[in-house]
């Protein structure tokens, strides 16, 4: 596989560096294909970005973008000096990093385990069932979690009888929110998240496996030396993308799950923006917080891309 990837990069050397004209001639149709795509993203994604101006304004909807008072970086400074700034930042980072650190390896392992099942109907059934939670909408999931974690709820009952917690509503104690959120996320997303890896694993050439088996490699060795390297490009690019969204936490989920008693661990940037920016009518402030979030994400994305380029010799761009 590695050999083949190298082969793919060869044509780069063939094209004469800097020769736009030749490139244009050779890939005329590619250039033409680029136009609608660029237009699409320009119109629907770039044009609305003038809304980021809001972050530097005391934005009043009625006055619009050009009638609102320009306040420079005041909104940003307000956010950085807000009493719960550090808390929100920490929560956002921890919740997201936990999801990545646990969820990402878990879905690869799950994909590998699924791949080890030989009874076809069983494999198919498990796969189908494992995606099912993803079809449950977030709002329903949260309803169930709240019910199960209540003082007399199913999960609380189980944990109490195991002697792990005192009887209480688990969602009213700031200590448990990260765990509850992580586990419910994994319940919903594990099977679904592993799809891409299952797809990648099955794309790994079977001949290599057979050849290795003939050479006497056992199952684990083959997974380690053939399957994992085979899905590496997919894994790395997914990882970079996820790192680039490290400061983005699903908004719906937290909003429907948290309550005022556990803001100290559950409040994240997106819920804060919603509560203060939209509900509180402070649009400019909300936009500033959102923009800060985007910038942090961008930095993380660039950093992870650079790191991956250096160590994994693969990058998104």
């Amino acid at each position: 596989m590695a050999v083949k990837t190298a082969a793919r990069q060869e044509p780069v050397k063939l094209a004469k560096p800097g020769s736009w004209k030749r490139n244009l001639q050779r890939y005329k149709s590619l250039y033409i294909l680029t136009i609608p795509l660029v237009l699409y993203f320009f119109i629907f994604n770039y044009v609305p970005m003038f809304g980021l101006l809001m972050a530097f304004e005391d934005f009043k909807p009625a006055r619009g973008f050009f009638g609102s008072t320009w306040v420079g970086f005041k909104n940003f400074i307000d956010f950085f000096t807000a009493p719960n700034f550090l808390e929100i930042l920490r929560n956002t980072f921890v919740i997201s990093a936990l999801g990545l650190a646990v969820g990402f390896p878990l879905s690869i392992v799950f994909a590998l385990l699924i791949n080890e099942i030989y009874i076809k109907w069983f494999k198919k059934t498990v796969q189908t069932i494992s995606y099912m939670p993803y079809f449950v909408s977030t709002i329903v999931l949260c309803g169930l979690v709240i019910e199960f974690c209540s003082t007399n709820g199913l999960i609380t009952n189980a944990l109490v009888s195991l002697g792990l917690v005192e009887r209480q509503n688990l969602l009213q104690n700031p200590k448990y929110f990260w765990a509850i959120n992580l586990i419910s996320d994994q319940w919903q997303g594990l099977g679904y998240g592993s799809i891409v890896f299952i797809a990648a694993i099955t794309n790994v050439s079977g001949e290599l496996h057979e050849a290795a088996a003939i050479d006497g490699a056992n199952r684990l060795q083959r997974v380690w030396h053939i399957t994992l390297p085979g899905i590496k490009p997919m894994v790395v690019s997914m990882l970079i993308l996820k790192c680039g969204m490290l400061m983005t936490v699903g908004f719906d989920k937290i909003l429907n799950l948290y309550n005022t008693a556990i803001y100290s661990t559950a409040d994240v940037i997106s819920t804060y923006v919603y509560r203060v920016g939209l509900n509180g009518g402070r649009y400019g402030y909300g936009a500033a917080v959102g923009l800060f979030n985007s910038v942090v994400n961008l930095i993380l994305l660039l950093a992870s891309n650079a790191i991956s380029k250096k160590y994994a010799e693969q990058s998104l761009f």
Partner: peptide, 13 residues
């Protein structure tokens, strides 16, 4: 009610 604080956006309960 022991669960009062967690019953904010709950649709099912």
């Amino acid at each position: 009610y022991q669960d009062f604080a967690s019953r904010t956006n709950d649709l099912f309960y």
